[in-house]
Structures are given as C-alpha cells and as structure tokens.
Amino acid sequence: MNVITCEGLKKNQRKVRALSDLSFTIKENTITGLIGRNGAGKTTLLKILAGFWRESSGEVKVFNQHPFNNLYVSANTIYVDDQMSFPASLTLTEILQEAEVFYENWNGKLAKRLFDYFSFHPEQQHENLSKGKKSTFNMIVGLASRCALTIYDEPTTGMDAAVRKDFYRALLRDYLEYPRTIIISSHHLDEVEDLLEDVLLLQDGSKCLHLPIDELKDYAVGLTGRTEMVRQWIANKEVFHTNNIGAGTTYAVVKKEGIPLDNARQLGMETTSVTSSDICVYLTDQTKGGIDDVFK
C-alpha cells in the first residue's frame, strides 16, 4: 500500500517556484531519507504532506486523502522539526501529557524513559531549552506519538554527536518494534544512510533520484588516472563530477551502469567506490566552479 502519492506536485511561493512537477510514491512502513541541498524544497514538500501548506497544483495523497486541512491525516501524522512551539504556560511533563491526549497510539512509557535518559527537568519550559535540547525533546514527542506517518525535518539540528547517535538508534529500535512510515530530511546522508531503505533526492524542487539506498551506494564509480586518458574515456558516458587532483591526474565520477570497469583498470585507471553522500552532492551540484571562484 502506498502511504504517499504525489503526481505533478507544484508549489509556488509568491513568484518563486519551490516545487515543480514532483511525482513519487512512498510505500507503507519504510524509512525514506529526503535529501537535497539547502533550498531544494525539502521542507516545502514535508509541510504539504503534513497538511500545513496547500499545493499550487498537482495531486498529493496521504493515506489516500488530500492532506491539506484534513483531520484524518493530521491524526495519523506528526511533523517534527526544530521550530515546534509549545505553549509557554505548560511544563515539559505537561506537554507530554497533552500529546498523549491527542495521539491515540502514544507510548507514554517510552516517552518517560527517553525523557529521563536525556535528563530533562520535568518542570522546565520548552522555550528555555537549548537548541539541541529542544530538538531532543521534539524527537521524543515524534517517537512516542507513533503516528502512522512520522515526518522528521532536520531532526538533529543542534544535537551533539552522542545524542544524534542515540536518536538514530532509538528511531530504528522503535521502528522495528512498531513499524510505520518515516520520512527524515537531512543534509547528512552519511549519518542516516544506515537507517534508510529509500532515498528521495530533490534538486531545485524536482525529483533527482528515488532509489533504494543499496542501489544508490552502487550508483556511481570513481575513476582516477591520467587526465587525457580519463577525459577521453568518459567522453560519452554520464559524468557527475570531475576534478583535477594533481599534476596531470584527474578524478571523475561516472554512472556505474554499463561501465566496463575491467577495461578501465587495464588502461591504468584506479576505480574507487563513491559514498552515497558524495553521489548526492555531485548530482545536485549547482554551483558554478568552486567557492574559490567567488574570490577571484
């Protein structure tokens, strides 16, 4: 069953096109990573899926219903980001109690144990928490609510390395115990890739790739060799990235499919695997030249 279906989804924000012609489906009980550069449209997409924003055109379905202003979708969806704002008159414990009232699947025991594990003070106010602590608390709300669709928009903002690791581990363990559809948007694919089943890569508001993570890891290959040879060899292939890495040596990343790797090795080129995080960076590279060119 598909939890999310998008067909030709478009979203304009005033004159700027945030999403253009986005079509994809997300299956039930999978963890999908939503990856993209800053401004690629990740948050816009997630807010439309959560029913906060209205699409400009196209069709979007969550649980087979149109999410905007939909109570059914809202009851089965939680959207977690670092901007979550809770009433200032409630303490952290009271916020958790209120969340329990609203979400039918709420796991109070888990919330309490995570709350204690991350040593929150029960009487503290949400607005007085540090950035990382806020994110951690929001993450607890997201985990404990056990919504059929759980959306994390950059959940680890401000968290330190240890907490981030704990978070990913907690997310995975709770997912195994209670499977649901999870979408995580992140800049750090290398951090989350062990969790993910699928990756949806956005570029400039449209879909760049939507693949299982295993296929993405095997998507491209890196070639290092003498510049002329590499240049000549990659001429009619799909090249994602080239870089001069020293006198007369070039590093190129090409699509792996249909590449005669043995042939490349015989010609004296070194073949290396490319991490999925690097592939995503190369695929969505939109800058002209490097940052150094700015200062010329």
């Binding site: 109570l71 059914y72 009851a75 089965n76 009433p87 008159s89 209120e98 009232v101 609203f102 699947n105």
Partner: peptide
Amino acid sequence: LNNVRLQKVVKKQSVYKVKA
C-alpha cells in the same frame, strides 16, 4: 490508522486551550 471524530478533537483542543 486512527479515525477521529470532529467533536472529540474539538473537545480535546478546547480543554488544551483553557490550560495552555
């Protein structure tokens, strides 16, 4: 999936707002 009734949500929210 949880089906929710409008009245129930309104009631929960009203109580929440009086507290919040």
